[in-house]
Design a protein around this nucleic acid. Sequence first.
RNA 1: UGGGCAUUAGCCAAGCGGUAAGGCACAGGACUUUGACUCCUGCAUUCACUGGUUCAAAUCCAGUAUGCCCAG
Length: 370
Amino acid sequence: MSKRVILGLSGGVDSSVAAVLLKEQGYEVIGLFMKNWDEADENGVCTAEEDARDAGRVADRLGIPFYTVNFEKEYWDRVFQYFLGEYKNGRTPNPDVMCNQEIKFNAFLEYALKLDSDYIAMGHYAQVEERNGKYCLLRGADAAKDQSYFLSRIGQKALSRAIFPIGHLKKQEVREIARRYELETAGKKDSTGVCFIGERNFNRFLDQFLRAEPGEMKTVEGVTVGRHTGLIHYTLGQRKGIGLGGIGNGRPWFVAGKDLARNVLYVAQGEDHPALYSKELTGTDMVWISEEEPELPLQCTAKFRYRQQDIPVIVTKEAGKYRISYPTVPVRGVTPGQAAVLYQAEVCLGSCLIEATVGVDESYVFLQGR
RNA sequence: UGGGCAUUAGCCAAGCGGUAAGGCACAGGACUUUGACUCCUGCAUUCACUGGUUCAAAUCCAGUAUGCCCAG
């Protein structure tokens, strides 16, 4: 009796090829399309419908059963509310990290288990490996597409059931397989934007849910240089949308901080401005994928944003809060709300959520008054 | 109402008689399952205005307008 796998079929190439590979490996594969957001984009296009159709076609071609499941309520309650709450607090959340933690590797997993599934599978570029009785999450083999960052907050229960069929492949190889099997998704462009919500004009999207309060824009030196359209529209390290040109030394401006209480946006000029760099951060809500805290202090590497290059860090813990320091490699634009994901070589150890940072130049501490 | 200086794209700015640098901003695209960053491309048939000199003017001359400075 072959093992049953419920695969998240999104209608993209990656999960399509995952289906192919699972079948080749002899699993009983069931395709499940998740519908978690019910709304057309600003052009009136509902990408979800098209994706569902593509997913269904792939399932047909491969001769696997195909169903749709609706997690709109779960997504709204557990991901979207968090997402809005973070913005309200002046932070920049990462909804897709939460989506994996709460939906794909929780709600979806529970659903699959109820259907007597042995495993769940996803088309992520990441790998699972059992080592000494623990399930480890490894980076995807294609460094350019590695998605372990987004999976850094799932635990042993989910990992013990998870299969990432394409995790050992390069994107190019995935596309080749899709072409060989003549899947309609073979040439489909990679999807971007918030998972399930899609590509949007971000500020307009946020404005539908949150009130943007315009206010003063000041340099970190304290000079008022303009107005901002609402603190929720900016993230630390951001360059586009500040609108300052021709003043100062002529170099570009970047968002350096937010003062929520005074509704002030702080900006700094020049990509090397010290106010933009931090050397340490504190984090909360740590999730260790092994579900066992390693011995601290821990030397490892970390990413503070998706696709950021790994940097060497030291992790310590004081009074329940984690401190991640990187004195040798100052990082620009480390932003509260984002996940600080820890790695030891290819193994993803887990992540915490960035709470605050310590700047390279301590005289800019006021930037923490967000 | 004497003198001096300035006026180049949204902003800053090069140019000093040979047919409009550059930067910032902005727009579009690439990259990207957050949001950024980054990268690529585009962006003054025209130099405050009107005349004149010249084969040729943003560049020289005259006048006008506006702004700044020094004297009154």
